[in-house]
Design a binder for these strands. Structure first.
Length: 463
RNA sequence: GGCGACGUGGCCGAGUGGCCAGGCAAGGGUCUGCAAAACCCUCUACCCGGGUUCGAUUCCCGGCGUCGCCUCCA
């Protein structure tokens, strides 16, 4: 398969370091505040990439870090008069909840920055020893002049950057572009002991240290948001490669930003939609589908309308699957699978893959309408939907139990189960008792259960 | 100023040098006690101007427009 490598800005055939295995590092959350829709996109998009690679047969080690020490966290704690732990815990819980509801699979490893201070100290030590870093009054900076390839990923020329008005010069730095590997401890801030003085790590060093620990040198895929290309990923590369003299990661994948009314969603500007709130209002899978309909590298403009659109599309998918009882024994339809793979093999063209899925659904529905066998198509559906994580959530009816019992009582159905209600309704229908049959359907409809009649019997699902 | 992305039918959104994306919405039809679903049909687009080509939405050049990064940010 081919993928687009930000490093070099070109499509490249995927060649793994170790045969059949893929090491993948995704820059996860800075657990500083509640996640917004943009965070969800990144999590979902790389979740699908990971699922697809596994579906191809690779053994994927998927590492997604948690940044639990940084300026913003400290600022938030100070602001609210609580500990940084409180901020971190609250935000992490929210991210975790959002991931779960979006169907994002758990990473193989989820390393926290503060649990890897030793690894960072070791890396910083190496950089100091080899002259790639220098300590000034408790701070340690990476010297970008010691790493000639600086700017290769983001295609920035250091001299252009230097002349940029936004770089704030600091007399203690040898070069205005040098960045902090270690920040000297300040009163009231979390800090750890280090040979060059107590302090806390800079932002970039954690990813270098943790990626090296869990994936080794020259691992396969490093991913994250487009906004991380510079400076975060550029700096990761510089410090990692300066320390080891070896390539850091082979393929760099970056997801496009999420826009709101044409403008980038951003925590810092408050121009955001809270992810958990969105998931309360809409079916999580519909939110997931919104993320997946646009190619992962493109900007995605969020709109309420798009979400309703996705809900309708989902109904179409699920409506097909509901027509066939659960497990299917057949082998998946080869043509559909192969078309899906062809799309996905070209830089994860999920939108193209979805096109195949909808074609499959139309053909499957057609066959079922004509009472032909659709087993192979259903099996292919399950396979594709599994890769994309778009399966219908199995919903229990616990929350509706009381209401269902009420309706059952109203129609004299003793058990209070949906199945018995529908049986009673079937009897009413065969007796042409439309008042009762429509009444049951309407009453169930009013509590969110949709009843549909088909030639081979009635089906129900949550609306 | 530097680096970069994008501009497709009512909306969303893939993709391709010559032939079909797909979804949603809309209209018509089939089926049906009604409803819903499903199926069939219709709606056939590719920012503008040049160029290359037998042929360009797709390649090249120029322009216009939108957006992103260059500062913490998925």
């Amino acid at each position: 398969m081919r993928l687009y490598n930000t490093l070099g800005r070109e499509f490249a055939e995927l060649r793994t370091r170790d045969e059949g295995k893929i090491g993948m590092y995704v820059c996860g959350a800075t657990v500083q505040s509640a996640p917004h829709l943009g965070h969800g996109r990144s999590a979902v998009v790389f979740d699908v990439i990971r699922r697809y690679l596994e579906w191809l047969g690779f053994e994927v080690t998927y590492v997604r870090n948690v940044t639990d020490v940084d300026d913003k966290i400290i600022a938030a704690a100070l602001d609210e008069g609580v500990s940084t732990d409180t901020i971190v815990e609250r935000a992490y819980t929210a991210f975790d909840e959002a991931h779960r509801r979006l169907g994002v699979r758990e990473p193989t490893v989820e390393p926290w920055a503060t649990h890897h201070i030793d690894e960072m100290l070791e890396l910083i030590g190496q950089l100091l020893d080899t002259g790639h870093a220098y300590a000034v009054g408790g701070d340690v900076y990476f010297s970008i002049r010691s790493y000639p390839a600086y700017g290769r990923l983001s295609r920035h020329d250091p001299s252009d950057l230097r002349s940029g008005a936004r770089v704030d010069p600091d007399d203690r730095k040898k070069d205005p572009l040098d960045f902090a590997l270690w920040k000297a401890a300040k009163p009231g801030e979390p800090s750890w002991d280090a040979p060059w003085g107590a302090g806390r790590p800079g932002w970039h060093i954690e990813c270098s240290a943790m990626a090296r620990k869990y994936l080794g040198v020259g691992f396969d895929i490093h991913a994250g948001g487009h906004d991380l290309i510079f400076p975060h990923h550029e700096n990761e590369i510089a410090q990692s490669e300066a320390a080891t003299g070896e390539p850091f990661a082979n393929y760099w994948l970056h997801n496009g930003m999420m826009n709101l009314e044409g403008e980038k969603m951003s925590k810092s500007t408050g121009h955001v939609i809270d992810l958990l709130e969105a998931l309360d209002i809409h079916r999580p899978t519909a939110v997931r589908l919104v993320y997946l309909r646009t190619h992962y590298r493109k900007p995605l403009d969020f709109s309420e309308g798009g979400l309703f659109d996705a809900e309708a599309a989902l109904d179409r998918l699920w409506g097909f699957r509901r027509r066939t009882p659960e497990p299917v024994e057949d082998a998946p339809d080869e043509e559909m699978i192969s078309r899906f793979q062809t799309a996905m093999d070209e830089d994860f063209d999920v939108a193209g893959g979805l096109g195949v899925l909808f074609d499959l659904v139309r053909e499957g529905n057609r066959r079922l309408d004509d009472t032909e066998d659709a087993g192979a198509l259903v099996a292919a559906y399950d396979e594709i939907v599994g890769v994309l994580g778009l399966g219908e959530e199995t919903s229990d009816l616990e929350d509706l139990g009381l209401k269902i019992a009420e309706i059952a009582a109203k129609y004299g159905v003793p058990s209070g189960s949906i199945g018995d209600l529908l049986e009673t309704r079937d009897r009413a229908r065969s007796e042409r008792n439309w008042a009762a049959s429509d009444g049951i359907r309407d009453d169930l409809g009013s509590i969110g259960i949709v009843v549909e009649d088909a030639p081979d019997g009635s089906r129900w699902h949550r609306g």
